[in-house]
Amino acid sequence: MRGDAGYPVRVRFAKQGKVRFVSHRDVARAFERSLRIAQLPVAFTAGFAPRPKVSFGLALGVGHESRAEYLDVELRDPVDVPALPALLTDGMPEGLAVTGAAALAPRAPALQESVTAVAYELRLADLAPAVVDAAASAAADAANLTVATTRKGKPVVVDVAPSLRRVDVDAAGGVTVELSTRPRAARPGELLTALRTLAGVEPGEGEDRVLRTHQWIERDGARLEPLAADPAPSAPSGADARALEACV
C-alpha cells in the first residue's frame, strides 16, 4: 500500500475481554465493517477483487488480549484524525476500542517491518508467585529455551531465548516480558510453555492470560511508539500521538 498518493493513517486499538477469542482475520473484518460504518474514504486495491487498503501489524494469538494493536489504513481524502478513535470505536464490538490515531508520512515503512520489540504481561494460572519467579529467573539466565510448537500446521521446535530481552515478576506472580521481533518474533504462548516447562507444571484447568501492552519501533537508538514513529509532515509534530500516549 505504500507509495500511493493517499492519506495513510495509523491507528492503535485495544482488544480486551470476550473479544479476545476473535481471530486476527475476523478482527480485520470487523475493522473493515467499522470503516464502512464510519463512511471513511478508504482507498481500494485495483483489480479483479478490490480490497480496502488496510494493513495490520503483528498478529495476536486467539485468546490473547492487547492494549497495543496497530493497523494502517490508506484514505483517499484527508479526514479529522483526532476524531477517528471515537468514530471507529462506535462501529466495533465491545472490547475492541480504537485508542489513538495519527496521520502517517507517505511511504512510511509498514508495521510488520518496523516493529522491533513487543511487551507482554503474562499471568500463569494456578502457580504460586515464588514458582513463577524462579522459572522467570531461570529463563532469563538460560542460553536456550526450546519449545515444541507448530508453525503453519507443522510441528517444529523453536528457541525463544534469542528474542527474550527481559522478564520481570511482580509480587503477585504477574510476569512482564519484552520480546524482540528479530531474528524471529517469539510468541508469548511459546514463552508461557517455556516458563511452565521450567516450573515443571503442566497447564491445568485455569487459563493462562496474555496481554500485549506495547509495541516499539526502535530506530537510530530511539524507541518510538508506532503512532509517533512516522508522522505525516504536516501533522502537528506528533502532538496527537503524545497526548494519546498519556492514556495508554
Binding site: K18, F21, V22, V62, G63, E207
Partner: peptide
Amino acid sequence: IEPLLTKVEKPARYIGMES
C-alpha cells in the same frame, strides 16, 4: 465456560457480542 474456550476450535462462536 471462559477457560474452556482456549481449548476449542473457533472459540468466538460462543461469545455472542454480535452487533
